[in-house]
Computed example of a mutant assay.
Amino acid sequence: MLQTKNIREKEPVIHRLARVEGQLRGVQKMIADDRDCREVFQQLIAIRAAVQSASLSYLQGVVSECLLNMDDSDDLDVQKATMTDLIKMLGKLSE
């Protein structure tokens, strides 16, 4: 299992996701208030970019730390499987 307890790595991602949460609520209100569809779409694009940025930040910081401190670090097969899984996830991020 990959996980971290390092708050310095997690805190920026948590902060970004909290901002995204606020943006999502704002877009819901925009739609309910029948705002211009271009404005709504612009906000949706901004949300997508913010989520992608948070995902990359998480991948860079937290996951790299996790990989360096893996419990099964002596098992090369586990390391390879973990890296393969992360690369697959990164590919999905760019879709």
Rank of each mutant, 00 (worst) to 15 (best):
E95K: 12
S55E: 08
Q43S: 06
A46P: 01
I14V: 13
V62Y: 03
Q79V: 10
R8H: 05
Q42W: 12
R35C: 02
D34Y: 07
L86T: 05
D77L: 14
S64R: 11
E21C: 14
D75N: 14
L56D: 05
R38L: 13
A49N: 10
I7L: 06
S94G: 00
L86A: 02
A32I: 08
M70W: 15
R25Y: 15
T82R: 01
L90D: 05
L44T: 06
S64A: 09
G61E: 00
E39D: 13
Q42L: 13
K29E: 06
S94I: 12
S53F: 05
V20I: 11
F41Q: 13
R8W: 02
M1G: 08
E39F: 10
K10W: 04
D74W: 15
N69S: 14
K5C: 05
T4I: 12
E9M: 07
E9Q: 10
V62H: 01
N69G: 08
C37T: 11
V40W: 06
L67W: 04
L86V: 09
I87G: 03
G61V: 01
G26P: 10
R25S: 07
S53W: 09
Y58E: 06
V40P: 03
K80A: 04
L17F: 09
L93A: 08
K88P: 03
L24Y: 15
K10I: 08
K10G: 00
E65P: 01
Q42E: 15
E9D: 01
T82P: 00
L90H: 12
V78H: 10
I45V: 12
L56W: 10
R8T: 04
L90Y: 10
S94R: 11
R35E: 02
A81V: 02
V40S: 02
M83T: 09
D36F: 11
G26H: 09
